[in-house]
């Protein structure tokens, strides 16, 4: 018992929280951006898988790590464009298209991977991002290892939260995006193009999702394997609801889930006689509880999942 509480004060737990949260932060931000413009993007799971693959592959083929991230983001945006074209101008069901994109992108990622790496071979590795060792700051007890010795993409994720939050709340473009998710007819009657805004948001959001995937292969691990996203995309979709479509709360939700995940891993080692599957379940169960408590008051964007057709109400 004491031991399990002691864990809470270990710097390694909290450092792990930020690390585990990073792909979730990217993913939830991306999903949030799509949904704020009125498009549900269930392609997230596949886009993250593709991001993970492309990020790894680029570095494996000789690109540097940052170029790898960039290429992964571009690949994400491209798949996002496909989802956007199907759901925005063509107005197809966003659920169906999203699930299709997930199946397609995950399978395509695996296929491309197999073109390079044959079956049976052990997964080739790359040299991943190293934790930054920010001078002086990283030597501060406790806070140092938690906050100032993460890998670079983690800081990029945190900066992205601030940027998306600022753009949505403070800029005319952000207002137009939010309005597109609420009532695209209004946007059109102000002479703006809701179709373009939606396509842009889905592409940018998908790029963020792909970055989340790429983090897995270029920072958290150093190789790619097909099931590595492991439902993180679906967690992000739930976290968007948890966050009431607000970036700040989305960050909080990602951290909360990551904390539960990191904590249960360590508890498994300390608490004996409980099947480990129960620990694995815990973060998901607690997420559902949190969702029930928080999401009831959430304000869903009114036009979420409603295709916009000009001149029709």
């Amino acid at each position: 018992m004491i031991e399990s509480l002691d864990l809470l004060f270990s710097a390694s737990l909290w450092a792990a929280v930020l690390r585990i949260a990073t792909p979730l932060i990217f993913g939830v931000l991306g999903a949030l951006l799509c949904e704020r413009a009125g498009v549900l993007n269930l392609g997230i799971e596949g886009i993250m898988t593709m991001g993970a693959m492309i990020g790894w592959l680029s570095v494996f083929l000789g690109a540097d790590l940052w170029t790898g991230l960039l290429v992964a983001a571009a690949a994400g945006a491209l798949i996002g464009l496909l989802h956007a074209l199907l759901t925005v101008p063509l107005g197809l069901s966003q659920h169906v298209s999203g699930l299709g994109i997930t199946l397609f992108a995950a399978a395509l990622a695996y296929y491309l991977y197999r073109l390079i790496v044959t079956v049976g071979e052990s997964p080739p590795t790359i040299e991943p991002f190293r934790p930054l060792d920010i001078p002086i700051l990283s030597d501060v007890p406790f806070l140092g290892p938690v906050l100032f010795a993460q890998t670079a993409p983690t800081y990029l994720a945190l900066i992205s939260v601030a940027i998306i939050a600022y753009v949505l709340a403070r800029t005319p473009l952000g207002l137009a995006i939010r309005m597109t998710g609420e009532n695209p007819h209004t946007v059109e009657s102000q002479g703006l193009d809701p179709t373009l805004i939606r396509i842009g948001c889905v592409m940018a959001g998908s790029a963020l999702m792909a970055l989340g995937g790429a983090f897995l292969t270029t920072a958290a691990f150093n190789s790619f394997f097909p099931e590595m996203v492991q439902g993180r995309g679906w967690i992000c979709i739930a976290l968007v609801v948890f966050s009431s479509w607000r970036p700040g709360k989305a960050l909080l939700g990602a951290l909360l889930f990551a904390f539960l995940d990191a904590y249960q891993l360590r508890l498994q080692a300390v608490v004996e006689g409980v099947p480990y599957q129960l620990f694995l379940m815990a973060p998901y169960l607690l997420s559902i509880v949190a969702l029930i408590l928080v999401a009831r008051r959430a304000r869903v964007p009114e036009a979420l999942m409603t295709p916009y057709r000009r001149g029709e109400r």
Binding site: P172, M179, N183, T186, Q190, R299, E302, R313
Partner: peptide, 27 residues
């Protein structure tokens, strides 16, 4: 006839939409 307002947003948000250049850094 059917008002083109967004219910979840404030009156000011609704009025200001589209009145500024889209790429202005701060509304």
């Amino acid at each position: 006839q059917h008002f083109t307002l967004a219910g979840n947003l404030s009156v000011l948000d609704n009025v200001m939409l589209g009145s500024e250049p889209l790429l202005r850094v701060r509304s």
